[in-house]
Design a protein around this nucleic acid. Structure first.
Length: 428
DNA sequence: TCTGGGGTCCTAGGACCC
DNA sequence: TCTGGGGTCCTAGGACCC
């Protein structure tokens, strides 16, 4: 944890409508038009251009509910292309890094920057410079909020999204309370559905209301999260910047089916594929797993009487990251929770209790991990998949080519790993 | 007909110990 | 028959984030 002091200056840089902006990079004709990007299986709306927001299309709304609006307003629709978004994200972050040695990548489209070395009077100008550079080098528009705590920089960013300049500095602002009172309580970072309900019941309707409330009251009536958020709004840092990337502690791979699935064979196939993906992820991070969870469920939106969801944990006797061991365990778990007669909508696997592999490699009782041949096989699979594209090498059970039960109707099919697709970005 | 995927942290309560 | 008090560790579920 980094040292927290009271002259923090933190910027939150957030890409505007990130997935939409990525698609626009390769398709400038949709620049000022309504655009949306869908989740996997073309299920929900997960990114919207400003124009699409103005049409009333909501975040997370199921696609079939907005189809009419889409048709009537000639909205451009894209299936998700995470390879593309990940690649563009990497470029944005690389560019951002130059502006501060202390940077925390918070999500695919957001990063916190420590700007404590910048003089107060230069903060706003610095923000403009960051924004301009990102746009010029990557083509992605951003909004930047600057504050003395992470929560305040988030709040500043929220305001910045609505301003044409795209940059808001709360460090120097005399109007900070006025700006905070423009932010509804549910738009405050760390305040979700449950807390919103509770706060509104108690007359706390804006970020400013929360800032004003007595500390004792918060402590008594909410948990540490609640008081942290309130403290941060007052300018007392409680959440520090974490510039070092930590390895993940859990790894979940799950997918909905494009078409509902009823038989065990199809579920087996999906779980096998998920296991292969998950184990490859943890091997690339040089981690091993202790516990596996397999889950299945029918659609939570269908009638209650037909709903079935279940999961099974398996505690492994020995830590491993061997695909074949994990698949075997997962399939037997799946068999134990599978019930005939249901239309399954989703299945997945969670690997938890992840730890660095090298610490546990020498286990006296291990009959699996000391199998050098197996380790070499896994390495070969990973290497091939990195070089020739994911799933180039797989195992028979996954049957990847045969028929993929996923919907992806509106893919832009852009692959930035292929140089022919790269556009030239020209910005004056 | 059709409703995403992947994370983190906190907390209450149970199991277990002396 | 009477049935303490205090501690740790683990886990499932909830809340939140993007």
């Amino acid at each position: 944890m980094s040292f927290m002091h009271y002259n923090n200056k933190i910027a939150l840089v957030d890409c505007n409508s990130f997935y939409v902006s990525c698609e626009r990079l390769f398709n400038p004709s949709i620049n000022k038009k309504p655009v949306i990007v869908l989740s996997s299986n073309d299920g929900c709306v997960i990114s919207r251009s400003t124009e699409a927001k103005n049409l009333g299309i909501k975040m997370g709304e199921p696609y079939f509910k907005v189809k009419k609006t889409v048709k009537e307003n000639d909205v451009s629709v894209f299936s998700t292309n995470f390879a593309l978004y990940g690649d563009i994200s990497r470029r944005v972050m690389e560019t951002l890094k130059q502006f501060s040695p202390q940077m925390e990548i918070y999500s695919i489209d957001e990063a916190f920057l420590d700007l404590s070395s910048i003089k107060n009077e230069d903060l706003l100008e610095h923000g403009y410079k960051i924004r301009k550079t990102i746009l010029k080098w990557t083509g992605i528009p951003t909004s930047i909020g600057i504050g003395t705590t992470k929560t305040l920089s988030k709040a500043a960013n929220y305001i910045a999204k609505k301003e044409k300049s795209g940059v808001v500095d709360l460090v120097n602002s005399k109007k900070i309370n006025e700006l905070l009172s423009r932010i509804k309580i549910n738009d405050v970072w760390g305040v979700g559905k449950q807390l919103t309900k509770f706060y509104i019941r108690n007359g706390i309707n804006t970020a400013y209301d929360l800032k004003k409330i007595h500390n004792n009251w918060i402590k008594k009536n909410t948990n540490v999260f609640g008081s942290r958020t309130a403290m941060e709004l007052r300018g007392h840092p409680c959440v520090s910047l974490e510039p070092y990337e930590e390895k993940r502690k859990n790894c979940c791979v799950s997918r909905s089916f494009g078409k509902k699935v009823t038989n065990l064979e199809d579920l087996n196939e999906a779980i096998t594929t998920h296991c292969l993906n998950a184990t490859q992820k943890i091997r690339l991070d040089k981690q091993t797993v202790k516990k596996i969870t397999v889950f299945i469920r029918t659609s939570p939106f269908q009638m209650k009487s037909n709903y079935y969801a279940n999961s099974k944990n398996i505690d492994l006797p020995i830590r491993t990251n061997d695909s074949i061991v994990i698949i075997k365990q997962a399939l037997s778990a799946l068999k134990s929770i599978y019930k005939k007669g249901y239309r399954y909508q989703k299945t997945g696997i969670i690997l938890s209790g992840l730890k660095d592999a090298d610490i546990y490699n020498k286990n006296l009782f291990s009959t699996i991990n000391n199998d050098e041949k197996r380790i070499k096989l896994m390495k070969a699979i990973d290497h091939t998949n990195i070089k020739y594209g994911n799933n180039a090498l797989s195992i028979a059970q996954a049957r990847l080519k045969k028929r993929r039960n996923t919907k992806k109707q509106y893919s832009s099919k852009i692959n930035t790993a292929c140089f022919d697709f790269l556009p030239t970005v020209k910005i004056a």
